[in-house]
Simulated scan of single mutants.
Amino acid sequence: MKKKQNRMWITWENQRRNRSLSEKTGFILNELISDRGRILRYFLLSFRTYSLIRSNNPSVVVCQNPSVVLVIVCALLKSFFGYKFIVDCHNSGLYPKEGRYNILNRIAIFVNSHADAVIVSNEMLKEDFKHLFKSILVIPDPLPNREHFYDNELGSPIKERRWRSDPRVKFLYVCSWAEDEPYEEVLNAFIDISESKVSCYVTGDFHRKVAEIPENENIIFTGFLSDTDYHDLIISCDAMIVLTRRNDCLTCGAYEALAECKPSIFSDTAIMRNTFGTGFLYSEPFKEDILKNVLLLAEDVSVFYPRIVESRNEFQVNFQKNLVKFEDEVSR
């Protein structure tokens, strides 16, 4: 969408969702970043936010939550500059610290309630919070593509991308080694596979989480990958695994799998099923269920493609409908 000068999207961190959604909605993205200590960073970024809004006098401001401090600053400045104020809460802006602390959840609701509208990532969150805010809009993450949503970093030489020459059925396990990810269950599932026709490429920095790397020919730890190598691995793999123990989480890897129509194993939660549809396999975060689905995909991944293509088309149609609703809200 063509960007409009009187529309501003403000964030205090680098995040793909901000870049992709601001582009899709025609907002000018302002990434205000500082590496100073917390208190000084809040002060500097608050002043830069004020200066930015004062010099541009926008009619609409969208800001990301988190940061709660950014939302407070934009809410206060709205009183002086009179713009329409929208907060993109996605998921974590409604459940800070993964919702573990009730007082933080209440603070988030109070702060977000000062916006004219709140953006969430799915219909289930809208149902949960619709009685608390003036208006709630549903916009999931746009599907990523190589041209817009991955940095153009230099990748490894082709000969070093070992997945290119791997003749086995290649699984990509998208893992950040976070507490909510059942990585031990996934690794144990592949350790239990005796067949040599299957391999699993595991992303992320595993050193702090895995004391002893399992010596298994089925498992390859990639370590940190550049965007170029990571996207190449997505394209080259036969199937993907993206799992979390969180019931309210839409994972970036699932969007990437849908974008490339990769047969995948996702978490068996209502939010994942409702967002990504049929064609994918959904698993509990336990070795037995993961192993069952891995073997099912390994038999013949091609049978899953047609329904995944349909799911991607349905996602794109619904995404455009949600953008129309967003534009209606912004234009009021």
Rank of each mutant, 00 (worst) to 15 (best):
K2Q: 13
K4A: 09
W9G: 04
T11D: 15
W12H: 10
S20F: 06
K24E: 15
I28V: 15
I28R: 03
D35K: 13
F47G: 09
R48V: 02
S55K: 14
S59A: 07
P66W: 01
S67Q: 07
S67D: 01
V73Q: 05
A75L: 12
L77I: 00
S79M: 14
F80M: 08
Y83H: 02
Y83M: 13
V87T: 07
G99I: 00
R100A: 08
N102Q: 15
I103V: 06
I103T: 01
I107Y: 13
I109Y: 02
N112W: 00
S113V: 04
A115H: 04
M124E: 08
F129E: 00
K130A: 13
L132D: 06
L132G: 05
S135H: 14
L137V: 15
V138A: 09
P144E: 10
N145R: 12
E147K: 14
F149R: 08
N152M: 10
I158R: 08
I158E: 05
R164K: 07
V169Q: 10
W177G: 14
E184A: 08
E185D: 15
E185W: 11
I191S: 12
I191D: 09
D192L: 08
S196G: 15
C200V: 04
Y201A: 04
G204D: 15
R208C: 12
V210W: 00
N216G: 10
N218T: 02
I219Q: 11
I220K: 12
G223R: 02
F224D: 13
L225K: 06
S226R: 09
C237W: 03
D238I: 11
I241Q: 10
V242N: 03
L243M: 07
R246E: 01
E256Y: 12
A257G: 08
G277S: 13
T278W: 04
S283H: 03
E284I: 00
F286W: 02
E288K: 05
V294C: 07
V301K: 10
P306A: 07
R307N: 07
I308G: 11
N318A: 04
F319Y: 12
V324N: 11
E327R: 04
V330K: 01
V330Y: 05
